[in-house]
Computed example of a mutant assay.
Amino acid sequence: MDSRFFTKREFNSGYSEEKYAATNVYKRMLKDGFKDYALAKFDIDFISDSSQKLDSLSAFLQENYDFKFEKLVQDDDHWILTGTATALPYTEEDLMFWVIDLYCKGYEFDCRLDGYGALSDPDSSSYLEADPEVPVDFYNEGLNEINKRNFGKAIIYFSVAIKSSPKMKEAWQARGYCKEMIYSYKAARRDYDKALEIDPDYTDALLIRGTNKDDAGEYDGALKDYNRVIELELDNGLAYYNRGNTKFNLGDKSGACMDWAKAKSLGETDAQKRIDAECK
């Protein structure tokens, strides 16, 4: 029996609905005069059956997201956490992923995102200064946010970098990674594909797309990506390790063990665990 306040079943069933709701919120913002990439600030509400859970979520979001929160309020059998996010530049897609990141973070702490609304006035819009000569600044800001697990904000920064420099393959790949971390696997794949359209031999994107394909059960496609990485970088231990996992999923135990052994020789410490478990 699931004793959680916000169950896995509820999380899964509400995921797509939360995306749809976010796009509707953005459409209403546009109707009220909001423009793409204008800065907007949102208030947010989370609920849970425990003040301790909300306290933990609040502490995490204050430290890593720079959110500000009011005092918890009890309403019958649940508690409410209300706060304000920092101003960020939004598009419809970026708002959707920003919301989904909060939806996922709430779930991690057994709290549910219960509502949000824009506080900004479209008649006095302001914008980030996105100099086309320095998109790397926004890319680096995105990397900083990844380190804090603030995937929604990271996606926004990578989007700004891409807007300034559409051929920045690193930003496409990193944005895809963030989408994958909040369970938007197909959207992540599209970003990996774009990075590889820019540079077909970009090994970081090949590796992560291979994992994405493996997770989706597309084992032949995953093997193709890992094989290409190994062609380009013969000493890439992670490519051997991942290829071994995919071969194992295909029933090729002998080939998997050979790849794990090669990965181990190249310094991939996790390979030993697979060897111990499967290669006796």
Rank of each mutant, 00 (worst) to 15 (best):
3 S>P: 11
8 K>W: 13
14 G>N: 09
15 Y>G: 04
17 E>P: 11
39 L>E: 06
52 Q>P: 09
55 D>L: 09
58 S>G: 14
62 Q>C: 08
64 N>P: 03
70 E>L: 11
71 K>D: 08
74 Q>R: 08
76 D>F: 08
82 T>V: 12
84 T>I: 10
93 E>R: 11
95 L>I: 05
95 L>S: 00
96 M>D: 06
96 M>C: 12
99 V>A: 05
101 D>R: 04
102 L>F: 10
105 K>G: 05
110 D>A: 10
111 C>F: 00
112 R>P: 08
113 L>N: 00
117 G>M: 08
124 S>C: 14
126 S>C: 13
134 V>S: 11
136 V>M: 09
138 F>I: 07
145 E>N: 15
153 K>S: 14
154 A>M: 03
155 I>N: 03
161 A>S: 11
162 I>F: 05
164 S>A: 14
169 K>T: 06
177 Y>E: 08
178 C>R: 03
178 C>I: 08
185 Y>R: 13
188 A>H: 00
189 R>N: 12
191 D>G: 02
195 A>I: 07
196 L>N: 07
198 I>T: 06
207 L>Q: 01
210 G>F: 00
212 N>I: 09
213 K>L: 09
214 D>R: 09
218 E>K: 11
220 D>H: 15
220 D>K: 15
223 L>N: 01
225 D>F: 01
225 D>N: 08
229 V>S: 03
229 V>W: 00
235 D>Q: 07
237 G>H: 02
242 N>T: 06
242 N>G: 04
246 T>W: 00
251 G>F: 03
255 G>L: 03
255 G>E: 05
255 G>Q: 06
258 M>H: 13
264 K>V: 04
265 S>V: 09
266 L>V: 06
276 D>T: 10
